[in-house]
Design a protein around this nucleic acid. Sequence first.
DNA 1: CGAACGACCTGCAGGC
DNA 2: TGCCTGCAGGTCGTTC
Length: 273
Amino acid sequence: MPELPEVETTLQGISPYLRGQSIQKIIVRFSQLRWPIPNNLAAQLEKQTIQTLSRRGKYLLLHFKQGTLILHLGMSGRLSIVTAEIPPKKHDHLDFILQNKKILRFTDPRRFGACLWSENPAEHFLLKHLGVEPLSKKFSGEYLFKKSRARKIPIKTFIMNHKIVTGVGNIYAAESLFAAKIHPETAANKISLLQYQMLTKAIIRILKQAIKKGGTTLKDFLNSEGKPGYFNLKLKVYGRAGLPCFDCKKPLQQNRLGQRSTVFCVNCQKKAT
DNA sequence: CGAACGACCTGCAGGC
DNA sequence: TGCCTGCAGGTCGTTC
């Protein structure tokens, strides 16, 4: 489900309910996520106050006086704000019961998500090596150009590497490359500075637009209020293999690239040589 | 160092 | 209806 826009949508949805609230109780129903939820989480956080919230790439961060709770939604994770009348369902692994009686509920069928605690998040192994934020000033065509000179991997794999730039997943990588008219299999070091500048602009524009629309709902993404996002109405290539390209009307092709399905237009997206 | 790929896990669609 | 296969929004860890 979640790439950067979905995580950002989630952050914006839950923040008003969480900021300044203390945690009354934590219920862990199932702790085996990508990494086990720490045993001492409840002892650590009960009666403590969530001061602020933020996002780093696809990670959601809840900041407390003593440290930071790091949440990742994996492929199928979701956070919602519920009340005690709503009984937990099968994959509702974790509840944070707040002072205001609202509950922050973590749901994740595939359990690729994570919930970890760190007293020094900047040095945490999951966050330490993350690259630039695509919506920050550091993200530019020059940056990608420079980082890519020794890289022969396909450009799509390159921009999905979060040590380079964080938060660009399979949907938005495909959409951005279509917008920039770059073939997803082009070697990263064969792409010109000018093309990287176009690509950077496309990524920024598409991510911002997706956030504005509340993210992309394919099967099951719902925001924290249980409402879907509407960016899927704007998708031009993702999920459209075999259907006509919106620009040239030729059928879109689907290849497998770095173990991920990749849809593109052979006609509009040219490989650099 | 970079590249390729297996691994983690459930749910669902499609073929037989 | 049921069984089997393959695929799904992520990304770490291992191996070469």
